[in-house]
Computed example of a mutant assay.
Amino acid sequence: MKIDVIGDVHGCFEELEQLFSKLGYKKEQIIYIHPQQRVPVFVGDITDRGPHSLNVITLVYHMVITHKKARYVPGNHCNKLYRYFLGNKVQLRHGLETTVAEYKRCSKEEQAIIRQRFMTLYEQAPLYLQIPECNAIIAHAGIKESYVGRANKKVTSFVLYGDTTGEFHADGRPVRRDWAAYYQGDKWIIYGHTPVLQPRFLNKTVNIDTGCVFGNQLTAFSLPEEKITAVSSKQPFVKEKFATYEAH
């Protein structure tokens, strides 16, 4: 099995199509297929902030659910959109407002289709994905080695939001521990969630959220080749959105 793990898309549909093309996928009707049967894996946060979240939902739904040519794990933004579609009271901020604005511009019939597709995608997704053939685990914000094989409230919080301390930065972002610095496993942990200017490799983990929606790049990590492929963003660059780390 050969996989291409795709970082946080956040509604950047044009960049996603460009990335598929650069990876060698061909568009067949409404989905992308690789001639060598490679499998795309979406690392979550496919919507919010970017300009075309509904197009991304439609494409990912058809690739994952209808045609079973891709895999998907949810991110925290996916979780919040799912709760919105459930009818729960959620705050329309941190990017959700852009997806909801797109959604509300649709007809009632189109809204019903989008809602059903996204909820099905979310409900059928694993919290994180283990792919033994590639010696890899894909989890939106990462996962501790001791959490692999488990699924409870604590694991869910970690996988969706990262290793949060309960404190917050001045701009409202949660303070997170650098869990990857302490990872000692032999499986690849491929994750996103925290925007970085370059893919961050540390202790057989790699963060591939290179902040496409903040004007940098949309990135894929391919296994077993251990290869990075990226395309440039069409969005405005917002430097302060990117994390920096101390050297280890």
Rank of each mutant, 00 (worst) to 15 (best):
A101Y: 14
V73E: 01
P174G: 12
R71F: 15
H140R: 11
R117W: 14
F118T: 05
L160V: 06
E102Y: 06
T66D: 07
K144T: 05
I57L: 09
H67L: 02
E102H: 06
R115L: 09
Y161V: 05
R71Y: 14
Y72I: 07
R173L: 02
K108S: 10
K89A: 11
G166V: 00
T156F: 03
I57A: 03
T66G: 02
H77G: 00
A180Q: 14
R117C: 10
Y72K: 06
V90N: 04
R93D: 14
G142M: 07
W179V: 04
H169Y: 13
V155S: 00
E123Q: 15
T58S: 12
Y103V: 08
V90Q: 10
C106M: 15
E167I: 05
V175Y: 05
E110Y: 11
Q116Y: 05
L81D: 00
R115D: 02
Y161T: 08
H67Y: 14
E109M: 14
E110T: 12
L121V: 06
S157F: 13
K104N: 13
L81H: 05
T99Q: 06
D171P: 04
T120A: 09
R173W: 02
N88Y: 14
F118Y: 11
I65H: 11
L96R: 03
V155T: 01
L121Q: 11
M119T: 15
L121P: 04
W179Y: 12
A112T: 06
G162H: 00
P174S: 10
N88T: 05
A101W: 12
P174V: 12
I113H: 01
R177V: 00
R177M: 06
A180T: 12
G149Q: 11
I113W: 00
E102T: 02
A170D: 06
A180W: 14
K104D: 09
R176I: 07
A151Y: 14
K89M: 08
L160H: 02
M63N: 08
K104V: 08
V73S: 09
H140P: 11
V155Y: 08
V100P: 06
R117Y: 07
E167V: 08
K144A: 08
Q91T: 12
T156Y: 07
V73D: 02
L59V: 11
E123V: 05
S146N: 12
L160F: 14
F118E: 00
G75C: 14
A181R: 15
R115M: 11
T66I: 04
A136H: 01
S107H: 09
I138F: 13
R173E: 04
K89E: 10
G185E: 04
L129E: 05
D163V: 05
A70E: 01
I131M: 12
P126V: 02
Y147K: 02
R93Q: 13
D163P: 04
C106W: 04
L121D: 07
E167N: 13
H140A: 10
T120I: 10
Y103Q: 12
T98L: 14
P174F: 07
I57C: 10
K104I: 08
A136Y: 02
G75W: 13
C106A: 09
N88M: 13
Q116L: 10
I138H: 09
L127C: 01
